[in-house]
Simulated scan of single mutants.
Amino acid sequence: MDARGWVPATAGNFSVRLGPGRVAVTRSGFHKGMLTPAALMVVDEQGRPEDASLRPSAETGLHCGIYRRYPEAGAALHGHSIPVTVLSRRAGDAITLSGYELLKAFPGLATHEASISLPVVDNDQDIARLQAVVEARWDAGAAKIPGYLIRGHGVYVWGRDMPEALLRLEALEFMLACELEARKL
């Protein structure tokens, strides 16, 4: 993700479910292209650190929200690419992606002759309030797509494990880069 410019500076965060009620997440303030074991920590599904002397990412609550909602989720990724940032700033409540071969990276889509409505939520520094907005979108039917955008900020995707989460992120980033290029024409 770092090599592709999706997590510049200290932006973005990654997590994996370790088992029932435990999540490993990147700590706040670490460059994601230079991670060491010291850049990771363990929290419970409410985002409370096992080691109170460590500070998790400010957005740990969004990762934990994914794990609470989706028992099958084993990994979550959050990035800040240029296409995500630009397109989400200009979008309404969703960005529709249609006709892309890579839509097949998402569950239940077996053909490019499909479309998804990728939720876009307004950014909010109050993570609990932001998570409540995300959950409301999931309740309204956006739960079928394992990803969403935060306006002017970044993207969240998840999967059963890290390879699946990364596959979905790559597919989504590609389609959004195509959308951004198409709008330049």
Rank of each mutant, 00 (worst) to 15 (best):
D51K: 03
G152I: 03
S53M: 10
V120L: 02
V120G: 05
D51P: 00
V7N: 11
P8K: 03
G141K: 08
T60C: 15
R4G: 10
G108M: 14
A177M: 03
A3P: 00
E72T: 10
D139W: 01
Q46I: 00
I116W: 08
H31C: 12
R137F: 07
P56F: 05
T36P: 00
R27L: 15
P163E: 05
Y156N: 03
A132K: 12
T36C: 12
K32N: 10
A140C: 07
G61H: 08
P56L: 08
A142M: 09
I127A: 01
V121K: 04
F106D: 05
D2C: 01
D44E: 11
A73N: 03
A38Q: 14
A165M: 03
A3K: 04
G61P: 03
L102K: 05
L176A: 09
V16L: 13
T10H: 11
K32V: 09
L172K: 04
I82Q: 07
E173A: 04
A182H: 12
A177L: 01
E45V: 13
P119S: 13
K32Q: 11
L77R: 00
A11S: 14
L166Y: 10
S53R: 14
G47I: 05
E170T: 07
H78T: 06
V120C: 06
S15I: 02
D2I: 02
L180A: 07
A132V: 03
S81C: 03
I95G: 01
A91V: 06
A171G: 06
L77K: 00
A165F: 07
R48G: 09
E45D: 15
E179R: 13
S98M: 08
G108W: 13
I150Q: 11
H80D: 02
E59S: 02
E59L: 07
Q125D: 15
T60Y: 06
T111A: 15
R90T: 09
A73F: 06
V133N: 06
R55K: 15
L62E: 03
H112F: 14
H112Q: 14
P146Y: 12
G147D: 01
L103Q: 12
G154S: 10
H31S: 14
G152H: 07
Y156Q: 02
A52Q: 13
L77T: 01
T96H: 10
D139Q: 15
A177W: 00
A24V: 01
R151W: 08
L149W: 02
G12N: 05
V25M: 09
Y148K: 01
I116A: 06
A143Q: 08
M175D: 02
V43C: 14
Q125W: 09
S81N: 02
L40C: 14
I66T: 13
P49V: 09
P107R: 12
E50I: 04
I82T: 13
C178G: 01
T60G: 07
A58T: 09
G65T: 14
R22Y: 14
G33R: 08
P20K: 12
V16T: 14
K184T: 10
G12Y: 08
L118T: 00
A24R: 09
W138K: 05
V155K: 01
R168S: 10
L109Q: 06
